[in-house]
Design a protein around this nucleic acid. Sequence first.
DNA 1: TTGAACCTTCACATCAATGTGAAGGCAAGC
DNA 2: GCTTGCCTTCACATTGATGTGAAGGTTCAA
Lengths: 128, 128
Amino acid sequence: MRIGELARRTGVPTRMLRYYEEQDLLHPDRLANGYRDYPESAVHRVQQIRGLLDSGLTTEIIRNVVPFLNRPDEIHLHPDCLTAETAALLRGEADRIQARIDCMGRNLSAIRAYLAAVQPGAGDGPPA
Amino acid sequence: MRIGELARRTGVPTRMLRYYEEQDLLHPDRLANGYRDYPESAVHRVQQIRGLLDSGLTTEIIRNVVPFLNRPDEIHLHPDCLTAETAALLRGEADRIQARIDCMGRNLSAIRAYLAAVQPGAGDGPPA
DNA sequence: TTGAACCTTCACATCAATGTGAAGGCAAGC
DNA sequence: GCTTGCCTTCACATTGATGTGAAGGTTCAA
């Protein structure tokens, strides 16, 4: 598909899709006329990128982890290609993501606890 | 304590501590000479702010939720002070934080699954 | 063949978070 | 008193992710 359709289907502006390509997060083919040509899987890929970006990761980090996020049915990288350094880097990123999740989880609990204490029964479905 | 000690104890530069104050995330008292005077609890508060910032939240969002993150033993806000709008806003923020947690959790799982598939036993403790 | 709706690249603007440093006031010790 | 180290405010620079728009090529359909 071309860039406009991908933008429509993901809600990500074309400007950003080109930026992600510049940052080596996407690698669309080119049609004869120079237009970018994205595979169907790009929709999922873009959603992953957006989620990671929204979660505070930089494009540099995402560039490192995104090759490993493909669906299992896509064979894309042999374990042989995974150097020890890359694996360590990946584990490091995973740990940092875990720390963020933990941090947000703690704070979220505090917020929810506060809301529950102040307005019991609100937000978790009506009591009848 | 003064700003220098807080910076040392949290690892956050004084520049940022002043910025967080400007953003209404911190409200230190002032000594007679104009120096900022932080309570002991500011250490924890700053760590919360850093964690949320690292998790991709903006200072605006943090400003909205941070008053409700105090320890339960600190009575700081009567339920009366919580307008319906504030509660709704808070629930909205909570939902967005939840969405981030979910998103990061999915990506984290994918990364960990990949690592586990490629290097079973690494990172989860030695097999003996 | 003209116009609309795509696409291209390029460039400059913006915004939030942060770095850096100048110019100067205050406090403690020598 | 002077130096040293802390603090103050102010301002300008930078970085990463974006917005915006110009100038122009390509379909396609009326």
